[in-house]
């Protein structure tokens, strides 16, 4: 099982996500509350994603797209990410790179998430834990709808 580091704030989670994204060579998967995308953009995480895609990597993401978050999701699509929308997701949130390094959380408040909030997340490079997260991601991916289709609904 996974040995790793426990992260206890939204800001630290973003710092870790940034580190993971910098080290990614092939693929990033993310399943995040939409507010995290806003914070990520604030700290340049979308730039890291763009760099990976320009090098031939792939980025897939799942989030809950509402009118409030339409623009931020559109930016992710513009840099070449594949993004899907999921309704009322209940489960772990995560960012996984190259089927190995990950940061995930068992419970993140989807509404009213702020940069100063406390979250508890787990950062590990254990590939068996990544496998477990990827299985969860793929289930959500299958259930989710294409972001562009969601835009039309909105």
């Amino acid at each position: 099982m996974a040995s790793g580091t426990i992260i206890e704030s939204v800001k630290d989670a973003i710092a870790v996500a940034s580190t993971i994204m910098e080290s990614a060579e092939k693929e990033i998967l993310w399943l995040l509350p939409p507010a995290m995308l806003v914070f990520g953009a604030q700290y340049g995480l979308d730039e890291k994603s763009k760099m990976l895609i320009e090098k031939g990597g792939r980025v897939r993401g799942v989030t809950a797209i509402s009118g409030t978050y339409r623009d931020i999701v559109r930016k992710h699509l513009e840099i070449g990410e594949d993004v899907r929308h999921v309704d009322q997701y209940r489960g772990a949130f995560m960012l996984v790179a190259d089927k190995r390094e990950s940061i995930s959380s068992l419970n993140v408040s989807i509404e009213d998430l702020s940069l100063d909030d406390r979250v508890v997340a787990f950062w590990t490079d254990d590939s068996s834990y990544a496998e477990y997260l990827i299985a969860t991601f793929e289930d959500a991916w299958k259930e989710a709808v294409d972001a562009k289709k969601r835009f039309q609904e909105l």
């Binding site: 710092a15 940034s18 580190t19």
Partner: peptide, 24 residues
Amino acid sequence: KQESELREMEARKRELQELAKQQR
């Protein structure tokens, strides 16, 4: 303000990387 926040984030990243290295 944004530059200062980014610098703060980079510093925190290095601290967390060091912490993770020690723990691993």
